[in-house]
Nucleic acid binder design. Structure first.
Lengths: 356, 356
DNA sequence: TATTTTTTGAGACACGTACATCATTTTCTG
DNA sequence: CAGAAAATGATGTACGTGTCTCAAAAAATA
């Protein structure tokens, strides 16, 4: 099969030369299979010159190691842990659901995923948990938790022990682009664009609600939001961020206050992934008339709100994509490969009633 | 490794029982490996009772066949062909680019993809090309072409010959959900929502442009658009679809005409994936002032237009996702598996300047 | 019951790579 | 140049499955 597609350029037809194997490599480089193996797996005791010869042969033949066969040979399996907050957040439930759903898909690639819920606000217990993981049982961890020095250290030690670590949804400054999640600045700016355009350049103020402004995510969303508003919608005025601390009584209080003090309220932006409390408070108060409302993350609640018109748009990141992307990145890390960045970019999705 | 994670429930620790193999299956079912193989690969000459015994063992042990090892054993490789139109469409270029970019990723799974450009408006030549493909050289084809009886027949015959066929981006009625592409009705409705909300309920008419209204895609987008406009934006009036037939002079003529006859023009919806001609014509005419403009697909042109404010939003489907999804579906077909539908759903993306 | 047919078992080899052992060659060192 | 050290080769086994052959057992038929 496939003789046509990658037959060697020579006229000899005896060997179809499908995909070069280590054997072909050895012949091409004029060394033994054992030496090829030493080079491929970075074992020492090989002369520099020989290494180069093999590498040249790799290039010439376009050799790509058959990872499937390699994994078979070394009985490589992958076990990844998702360290997630313990909260009852609907978005989190979506994430967990997708992890479980993806199990059977991943199983085919010998990947097993577990969820471990952690107390995201206790850096000590997080790092204590991470310290229990070792390479013998765990190949990698995706960690969703706010950044802290302790966490940073714990991640560093994980890597030393040969366990891959990957910031998940919550960003960690130190990691550059080695994380999985959407660009929160862009998300905030997008919320601003939508509110700005939906309110049709009528003047007004915008209420912004977060669970807490301690997290990088909220800060960046706010930054993006403000930048966009001030640059393109000077008619609108973004109010200071309200923090609910996950407490619905407090939410009711501060929201009611803000509504009372800002009769020109034109928009609402819920930055945290839990929009139930703010929206229900607003409904209770009864001034929801013509306010443009935007929230984060697609959940049963936000979907229903969008359908009923109680929400105008959702800014979301695809939970399934988040999970799969994290797994692919962790696996690539274990395999010592690079991931294709274009595939792993998490989109800032705009969801309206019509493209639910 | 991983003894802890899936050790058998018994107290015997000798065999960690990582993942059951055909050997374990044979033992459990009380048959030989040969018989297990016969059952697994559907060969005949096995008593019904024995088949059941093996199936029961599969269930009991939770056996999942190691596809990687299986592919290794049978030297299974995959070769997929993308049969795409010959046009110079920028969106098409994006697709082709992503196919090429994905090559190295796919190569690891022993998948090879080729692009074959076809004359999408000549059903005869399409089916002639498809007739040249056989299972010996090609495991599957993704076909992007308008539906026609000839194409339908050709696809049917492909399947008979053991070649998987998959409608790609262009829908084929007969295929139910066995295709890859976005929901065009939803896409049209989303365009309508955006235009409706961006124009802020001021009355006005909307110009709708397509290359041709012959294709299902355009028809469905139009349907979705009209439904949404009539239901939620009675102040807006969607004009009859203009067909450019890919001819820019014609485009200029009909667009100029429409602009002249509709001084209340409030919006523009370019339904086809090539927005260059319509937009430049509109710019030439010079009445682009406050018209809300929406086009399809993310290309260098539409991106630039979005940045410069010459376009208000893009309705897009991710070309990379389209390509990968097609390959996964074709592979699943060859492997006789089901694909996880949630992963394969192509989102109707809304792209604004802020979430480019 | 004898014979044929169907069903099952046992075993070997293959796929491409990893990994280990031991022998052999080459290179370096004193 | 002898001896030690380094580099390389040769070879075997393993991973989990597919595929083949041949023999053995079981079931169906005459």
């Amino acid at each position: 099969m496939f003789d046509k597609m990658c037959k060697s350029a020579t006229t000899t037809l005896e060997k179809p030369m499908l995909r070069p194997t280590t054997k072909d490599l050895a012949k091409e480089a004029g060394v033994s299979r054992a030496t090829v193996d030493r080079v491929l797996n970075g074992r020492d005791g090989v002369k520099e010159k020989t290494v180069e010869r093999v590498n040249k042969a790799i290039k010439k033949l376009g050799f790509v190691r058959n990872i499937q066969a390699a994994n078979l040979a070394r009985s490589q399996k992958y076990r990844f842990v998702f360290a997630l907050p313990r909260s009852g957040d609907q978005f989190l439930k979506e994430i967990i659901h997708h992890i479980e759903e993806a199990r059977s898909t991943f199983a085919e690639d010998l990947i097993w995923c577990d969820v471990q819920q952690i107390d995201e606000n206790d850096p000590h217990s997080i790092s204590a948990f991470l310290a229990t993981l070792d390479a013998a049982t765990t190949s990698g961890v995706a960690i969703m938790a706010p950044e802290s020095p302790q966490l940073r250290d714990a991640i560093f030690r994980l890597k030393e022990r040969g366990v891959a670590a990957l910031p998940f949804i919550s960003d960690q400054t130190t990691m550059e682009d080695h994380w999985v999640g959407m660009n929160n600045y862009s998300a905030g700016a997008t919320a601003a664009t939508l509110i700005g355009r939906f309110t049709a350049s009528a003047p007004g103020s915008i209420m912004i609600i977060a669970e807490s402004m301690q997290s990088r995510d909220s800060l960046e969303r706010r930054l993006g939001f403000d930048a966009e508003i001030s640059k393109h919608f000077p008619n609108l005025r973004a109010l200071p961020s309200l923090e609910t601390y996950g407490n619905s009584e407090r939410a009711h209080h501060i929201i009611a206050n803000t509504v009372r003090n800002n009769p020109d309220l034109a928009g609402l932006y819920v930055m945290s992934s839990e929009a139930r409390a703010p929206l229900s408070v607003l409904n209770d108060i009864g001034t929801t008339s013509s306010i443009v409302k935007i929230a984060h993350e697609r959940t049963p609640f936000t979907e229903a709100a969008l359908r009923s018109g109680n929400l105008d748009a959702i800014i979301a990141q695809d939970p399934g994509h988040l999970v799969r992307s994290a797994v692919r990145k962790l696996k690539a890390n274990v395999d010592k490969r690079q991931t294709k960045s274009s595939q792993e970019r998490i989109r800032v999705e705009v969801i309206l009633r019509t493209n639910l």
